[in-house]
Design a protein around this nucleic acid. Structure first.
Lengths: 180, 180
DNA sequence: GTCTATAATTGGATAGAC
DNA sequence: GTCTATCCAATTATAGAC
């Protein structure tokens, strides 16, 4: 609002959003971000306070990234897996960067938060029954496990496999937690 | 073999095996390891070549860490989940440290290797059918997802939940991939 | 084999001119 | 708001005495 040139701050944000997931938190220096953004390194600290503050400001999910869960309950499993596989680089990048930087005290709570809002809460909202809480969290484990093996581990055979087959098979497992 | 005092090298190994999983790769300095081991920092480089070489020498699974898979095939799901939950700090520590350091080019292949030998291969060996390969890798995703949510994310409700309940529920999902 | 001292680099963050 | 110059701390790794 007070800025006369909004481009600088946005350029830093855009560069950070690209470099942090690619190179990791420790592997991405403030100077790297500054160079990619075409600005001076000092401006990053001046605008965001610290490297970690910038990281945490970028690595969060806005409301729009929440998956739609309007569909029929008996297809929730497949639909959610399909969403996770297609949900674009943004969610995947945030997930990846947070997981790999989660040994830092500052980012560990953020990973919990993103995991909760992206996986647990949407599933929890549509589950019923006495064990809904545990089932929702196991469901979130299952979903996170797919992201883990494909993008953290980088399982080549899984990445090369037929996506509709994965959606069908893995979605059926998720469905078993949703409607036991 | 050539060393007159095997204690130094072992002391370094022990300290590294404890500090790396706890503090992460970037968060653990050579000096930290040296202090914990009660040796000089220069000896670490002299004995292992580099920090990364030490990390990679520690963060691997020896054969003994492989789970036994002798039991009945129709209880493999529960047994494997039970193994993963109880399999001690060693496997968990290696898994954790590798996941969080997997943005480095040097450790990414090692994570794939450990994931393969600890999760994929044991399951793959007991699966039959045309889609055994994909099913084994989805099963490994499922298993890794549980470790992810409990130990990387640190889902408190899941950690506090009844383990036998988790084994029963999550094991049933794994079983559905083993014997469809 | 071990340790002291230090090199050589890189990092985040700051001060102050413009 | 922006940039130049720099500080200061921390890192891995090495050289050489003992």
């Amino acid at each position: 609002m007070t800025s006369s040139r909004p481009s600088t701050r946005e350029a830093i944000r855009a560069a950070a959003a690209e470099l942090f997931p690619a190179g990791g938190y420790a592997g991405t220096s403030v100077r790297d971000i500054a160079a990619a953004a075409g600005v001076d390194a000092a401006l990053i600290i001046r605008h965001f306070g610290s490297k970690e503050a910038l990281f945490l400001e970028i690595m969060q999910l806005d409301e729009e990234a929440q998956p739609l869960l309007d569909g029929p309950i008996d297809q929730l499993g497949e639909h959610f897996i399909e969403y996770v596989l297609n949900a674009g680089d943004e969610v995947r990048g945030i997930f990846l960067a947070l997981v790999r930087a989660s040994d830092s005290d500052g980012v560990a709570p953020r990973l919990r938060e993103v995991h909760d809002t992206a996986f647990v809460a949407p599933l929890r909202s549509r589950l019923t029954g006495p064990d809904a809480e545990v089932r929702a969290r196991l469901a979130a484990s299952l979903v996170g496990g797919l992201l883990y093996s494909m993008w953290v581990v980088g399982d080549e055979e899984l990445l090369a496999a037929d996506r509709t087959d994965i959606v069908r098979r893995y979605g059926a497992l998720l469905q078993a937690l949703v409607t036991p």
